[in-house]
Design a protein around this nucleic acid. Structure first.
Lengths: 335, 335
DNA sequence: AAGTGTGATTGAATCGTTTTAATCGACTGG
DNA sequence: CCAGTCGATTAAAACGATTCAATCACACTT
């Protein structure tokens, strides 16, 4: 019960070439033949075999997207932006979730390369540039997401993380807080270290202000809760009076921990600010101040860059696009 | 600069057949030949072309997953479960987002069928059973998610939605509420109508209790907010004293609307319960009571069913698995 | 020494679509 | 009436990995 162009051609009494033409450039085929072939396709329930098509074409019609965490709305929003733009260009997005794991990241890159995807968008964990360079050398255009390559060797779409970190910390300082804590990790993530660096420079400018770092093993709600609990375990006088979390998931976890016992007021005792401004941030126990990133726009732009990169060939220029983040003030830092 | 098995074979001074054997069943090849071939692969940076492989094999090594909304954590959790189980079986999951749109759903089904995926998992919108029956007839095993086929013609993994709806409404009634409102839609979604039906029967059992329906066009935070605002627009005496939202996203939107002006107390004036128990529910402004569904387990089980279905061939039995939901009580219904 | 078995390797056919050069008919203008 | 053109169609050659029957080399048995 396998139906290939061969059967369709036989039924429509034409050659396989004509069947192919009907599917791909019907204007080259006489109207009545088109009709006859389409009738045959329908009658037999023919579905074209994409593997054969790709084999001939050399490249697939999809692009691979590797994100750090599909559970993070920031990345699903970004994916939506990429998907929409890709759809306009007739391409499909394959979504891979590295879950902050180098092995999984690598597995997805292998898979995408074997599939000869049109290109790869990736928010890399740690330092993968060597692997990515090889990927590109072998002909798969690559764009970095949410991260700039040190050596400008890659096209990238990112947001100014040091500036975001600076803005967040500055905001807390302006609210009169002096004993800040940064919650985030792992340090292998560039986003984390950049935001921390930004916060550091803001604190350095302010006499009498301090910044402690509470490191986490992931950017998840659970890890945030753990960090929050470690703060709660201290005597009240030992606690920071403001917390800057490296993303909103962490911030929400921290918030849960602080609120669980009900004895720590936010923002009364501790002000809290997150990062990303995911949709849930505004609906939190205490609506969360945050640093907004234009997530959909990032995905959208990344696809544009990828298409340009693909068109230019290997020796084209690489373009770095950096968006500016935006401070969103809500109740968690005193409205 | 294209590298195929041919080049590898030439460099290693063996035949292409041997190269293939090295990759797929190295135990059939003498150790030193294996080594020579692998060295050649590495030296040339050879990456096997998946399209050619699939063409020969007849089927791809991935399974297609079509969900209603990737923005909904329920579905990303489900996807994670599916992905993990699939990985154990050496398969990849391709995630498609129908966004509650029949056209996009169809596009993904076409794509997956053209790719000759191992099988399809889908949370169908509206009535797609005819389309799915054809898909299966042509050889692609299919499992329904979060939805049972009326005629038992499909394997499916779902949760008892009428029971969940009943439980939610019953809980509100037991808290002394009598003027309930159901927020949800569109009515084309089976999940919505089933949960509503369950709620209806609970209300019918309770003398003096009423249930109004506020229909939405989607199960999103935004639509929830819209519904909440329509409630706020009424005189206080005309408002319900309890709201059952068809999922947590809606419930969080409702909550935002009720809280925005600050004048409606939850659960004081209006008790609120959602559905799914997504991770963010417990971190909401007012921690949200909800009906928990075992999302990861659903994804996991669905892949199992799919593999069984694929093994049995077309005329095998179809299995319907129904999980029971669980009431989670938090502050939004009075703790 | 002939025959038998075994393990390693090979060569060619195959999967299904796309593409290109070639062919065919019919028609037009000189 | 013939050369030339044009549109529609065809046949065959790709694309690259897999697989299976055939071959080969070599050791072991009788």
């Amino acid at each position: 019960m396998v139906v290939s162009v061969r059967e369709v051609a036989a039924l429509a009494k034409v050659s396989v070439g004509t069947v192919s033409n009907v599917m791909n450039r019907p204007e080259k085929v006489s109207p009545d033949t088109v009709e006859r072939v389409q009738a045959a396709i329908l009658a037999l329930g023919f579905v074209r075999n994409d593997a054969a098509r790709q084999l001939r074409a050399g490249r697939s019609r999809s692009i691979g997207l590797v994100v750090l965490d599909v559970g993070n709305p920031f990345f699903t929003d970004l994916a939506r932006g990429a998907e929409n733009r890709a759809a306009e260009a007739g391409l499909t997005v394959l979504l891979g979730n590295s879950d902050d794991d180098a092995v999984r990241e690598n597995a997805y890159l292998d898979l995408f390369e074997e599939q000869r995807v049109h290109g790869v968008l990736i928010s890399p964990i740690g330092d993968t540039t060597e692997r990515l360079a090889r990927l590109r050398e072998r002909g798969t255009p690559t764009v970095l997401l949410d991260r700039q390559a040190e050596n400008r060797n890659f096209s990238s779409v990112s947001v100014d993380d040091p500036a975001g970190g600076y803005t967040a910390a500055r905001h807390l300082l302006e609210r009169g807080r002096r004993r800040l804590a940064f919650v985030g990790g792992p340090a292998s993530l560039r986003q984390v270290t950049d935001r921390l660096a930004g916060a550091r420079s803001a604190v350095a400018e302010q006499a009498g202000a301090t910044l402690e770092v509470i490191e986490t093993t992931a950017l998840s709600v659970l890890e945030g809760r753990r960090a929050g609990e470690s703060v709660m375990a201290r005597a009240a006088s030992e606690r920071p009076d403001a917390i800057f979390a490296a993303n909103d998931l962490l911030a929400m976890g921290v918030l849960q921990a602080l609120n669980m016992n009900g004895d720590v007021q936010v923002p009364g005792a501790i002000a809290l600010i997150g990062y990303d401004d995911i949709a849930f941030a505004s609906a939190a126990v205490v609506p969360l101040s945050s640093i907004r990133q234009p997530s959909e726009l990032i995905g959208h732009t990344a696809v544009d860059l990828l298409l340009r990169e693909a068109a230019n060939g290997a020796e084209g220029e690489h373009e770095q696009i950096v968006f500016q983040p935006e401070l969103i003030i809500r109740a968690s830092t005193g409205g």
